[in-house]
Amino acid sequence: MASEFIYDSARRPLPFWEELIALWAYRDLVRQLVARDIKVRYKRSVLGVVWTMLNPLLMMVVLTLVFSHLFRWDLPHYPVYLLSGTLLWNFFAQTTTLAAQQLVWGGALLSRIYVPRTVFAVSALGTGLVNLTLALIPLGLIMLVTGVSFHPALIFLPLSIFLAAAFTLGISLLLSSVAPLFPDIVEMYQVILTAWYFLTPIFYPVKILPPQYRFWLKLNPMHHLIAAFRGPIYEGVFLSGEGLLGTMVLALGTLSLGWFIFTKRADSIIYRL
């Protein structure tokens, strides 16, 4: 009876902080959920972890053949351009979708026992980060093969990943605050993702866009995050001071907004699970 834990429904801190504290207390659960997702993904496949690395490679080969030969964009080292953009996009798309699915999965548990509700979005992020890190290995190989040099700007890559992670968690939480209400939300989100993918310069260069559309690109958060990730790898440059500040505000602002709305709504979500 060492811990004198007291719960008082009348005297609660702001949901925003309360959830942070609760999440910290349940950090071992986050670790277990990430380990589960990784293990389950690789346990029964013959190729194991190799598959995570092979998958983007195969996709890259196909897309490179299609785009650099069919469309003839004048982009040096197109495979590296394509793969770096694709990796970050996949990280974002897969993590947000997984977060929403996990919350729906956890619903049966959440209506029976207390678990901090952000656990599922945070563990989905953890899984996404592990996969992204593993996928950096084949990216490095491609860079070696195609002769892209490893620029000193690469030391900023963790910062780029951090910004992308913050934005991704923010969107995951926003999605999680509506996904349990209606089963068709995740389906609709997939349609949005597909459109979003084509509107973001991932497999095509920015310069093919007519100047009048460039302005709209500025409003696309994924464009900035991919630029921050691709810069150090492909061009050997990181964001300028101004660009970094803007991207930071964008990423951390989205995270705070998502955290705020989700923790505020979490209690009423439970009634619907």
Binding site: Y7, D8, S9, I113, Y114
Partner: peptide, 21 residues
């Protein structure tokens, strides 16, 4: 058990609560 929050009123609990589930 903190699964639901009361619409009104107050719940005060001292100690670790565990469901037998």
């Amino acid at each position: 058990a903190r699964v639901l929050r009361p619409t009104s009123g107050r719940v005060w609990v001292k100690g670790r609560v565990a469901p037998l589930l």
